[in-house]
């Protein structure tokens, strides 16, 4: 990651890929302690973005289906 984008600009795929990266770094154990805390916080933010995206997508489909049926 050269320049990390603002969290709000990330696509679902970007957020998920970054989350995978965070987990990998933390699990390697080679991260300094102060850095580890920061990483964990970023991981939580990324996971929240992904979940929001998935929930939004499901809601869109449900809406479209109800419009179709109604």
């Amino acid at each position: 990651m050269s320049t990390p984008k603002q969290a709000t600009e990330l696509s679902y795929e970007e957020a998920r890929d970054q989350l995978v990266g965070v987990v990998r770094e933390l699990e390697s154990g080679s991260v300094p302690l102060s850095e580890a805390m920061r990483l964990w916080e970023r991981g939580e933010v990324l996971a929240a973005i992904c979940q929001r995206w998935l929930d939004g997508a499901r809601a869109t489909i449900e809406r479209a289906k109800s419009v179709q049926a109604g």
Binding site: R16, L19, V20, V23, E27, G43, Q51
Partner: peptide, 11 residues
Amino acid sequence: QLDALRSRPVL
């Protein structure tokens, strides 16, 4: 996949 990532111990 997301659930699996989130349940990793480090997170």
